[in-house]
Amino acid sequence: MNVFKKEMKANIKSLIIWCCAQVFIIFAGMMKYQGFADSQVDVNALFAAFPEEIMVVFGIGSVDITKVAGFYSVFFLYFMLLAAVHAVMFGAVAVSKEERDHCADFVYTKPVRRFQVIWPKLLAGLINILIFNIVTFCASVFFIAQHNDGNGLIDKVSLTMLALFILQLFFLALGSMFGAVLKNTKRATAAASGLVMGFFILSVAVDLYDKLDFLAIFTPFKYFEGATLMINDQLSFNSAAILLVVSLVFFVLTFVAFNRRDLST
């Protein structure tokens, strides 16, 4: 309990900043929607004139972005990116920061087993990503409602947030595994953020080149599609199952690797 409390306290500031950024992105994004809706321009026709590569990178595929659900579904890519970076960093730092701050000799010489320190940290991580998720949900429903005659599309957004949470969990697990396996925090965060970037680039490549479709399984960013969630109200069970199982494996690896670790001063 003491470790959990301490971890929550240590992360509260950064969580607030992350949430504010997220709320701002949703707010600003929906403002743009208002802009589209107000102008009499045929936005779909306008975007059709853009090169496909650009549209893919910005996550604007084939959805009808003049409808609020379609427009919002484009956000999912940004949510995934932001949430992934947040969760992966949390995991990597939480597990390895005692060694970075030279406090390992303090905590790990207390009468606790190593997993008794690690699991409250991961629990704190879970609560942090959950709060981030809930804030995203509330901000989404609130701002969608403002541009959709008071209808916040709660059902659709809930489903999207569920998908987002599964991804957050995956990235938290991935980050914590890096924290436990790699030599120090610096390497863990570098590897984690590099991998997030790699996943993103891969997902763009898959969107651009049909030939690369088989690679989609290697990037979590292709496990859920904003449009499927927001428009077809569908969450892929297979994707969710794979991500959850892999997350579990990463968490187990975190504990095993950390237990074997020689802690540095």
Partner: peptide, 17 residues
Amino acid sequence: SEIRRDIGYLPSEVFYY
């Protein structure tokens, strides 16, 4: 973990939070 209940340790390099 059991043994460490009865150990007091002062590391050579002291850094705390």
